[in-house]
Amino acid sequence: MKTLLISLTLSLAAAGVAHADAVDALRDFARDVKSGKANFTQTVTAPDGKRKKVSSGSFEFERPNRFRFVYAKPFEQTIVADGSKVWIYDADLNQASSRKLADALGATPAAVLAGQNLERDFTLKALASDGGLDWVQASPKAAESTIQSLKLGFKGRDLAAMEIVDGFGQRSRLDFSAIQANVAVPADRFQFKLPAGADLIEQ
């Protein structure tokens, strides 16, 4: 019994260290990673848990508040933030929309990845390790946030995944690969140019 209790205590202590490390990893990421790029696969699951939609693309960012998501499959869509505005372009519709960054960013996943005020916007809490990743919950402090929950998974010190549940109960998971931290990203990657003939809706 004594051996079992010792083993259990050591296991719990080790888990506590791992969880604390995951929170520290997120803080380090927000503080030390000033720019980067990665590929991603996004799986969106309907609230009933049955219907799923998978897409993939690439992601680039530079703090503060500049990022570019490019969805390549199955439909082409580009989301660009230039530091003052966010632009969303749908290639199939040849239509773009824009809104002020302050109105769009807030306590969103993009704010974690490319913002500069992590703990002003989110409350951080360590979660149990799962699927080979150490997880952190980032709860929005803003009452009007459009997301229910946001979790980030780290493999060591590297960001590997993100899970978001929106206000309708839809779950999105992004798995990152080919991550490059603190690499130079050309400034024009965060500038949006309206394609010829495209409609623009400004909000």
Rank of each mutant, 00 (worst) to 15 (best):
K2Y: 11
S7R: 07
L8F: 12
L8Q: 13
T9W: 12
L10C: 15
A13F: 04
A13K: 02
A15V: 11
A18W: 08
H19T: 10
A20P: 02
D21F: 00
L26T: 11
R27D: 10
F29G: 12
F29I: 08
A30K: 03
A30L: 05
A30H: 04
V33Y: 00
K34V: 12
G36S: 04
G36H: 01
A38K: 01
Q42M: 09
T43Y: 07
T43N: 06
V44W: 03
A46H: 08
D48W: 10
G49K: 01
R51W: 09
K53I: 11
V54R: 05
G57K: 06
S58E: 13
E60D: 10
E62Y: 10
R66P: 00
R66T: 04
V70N: 15
V70H: 13
A72N: 14
Q77E: 15
I79C: 04
G83R: 11
K85N: 13
Y89F: 01
D90A: 04
Q95D: 08
Q95E: 13
S97R: 14
R99S: 15
A107F: 00
A107E: 00
P109N: 05
A111L: 06
A111W: 04
G115T: 13
Q116T: 15
R120K: 15
R120G: 13
T123E: 14
A126N: 07
D130V: 11
G131V: 01
D134I: 03
Q137N: 12
Q137M: 13
A138T: 02
S139I: 09
P140S: 05
A143N: 10
A143E: 12
A143P: 09
E144P: 01
Q148C: 04
S149V: 09
L152T: 05
G153L: 03
R157H: 06
D158H: 01
L159G: 08
M162H: 05
E163N: 10
V165Y: 02
G167I: 11
F168H: 14
R171W: 09
R171C: 02
S177I: 08
Q180C: 10
A181W: 13
A181P: 09
N182R: 08
V185M: 04
V185K: 00
R189Y: 12
F190Y: 06
F190M: 05
Q191C: 07
F192H: 00
G197R: 02
A198K: 03
I201G: 07
E202G: 11
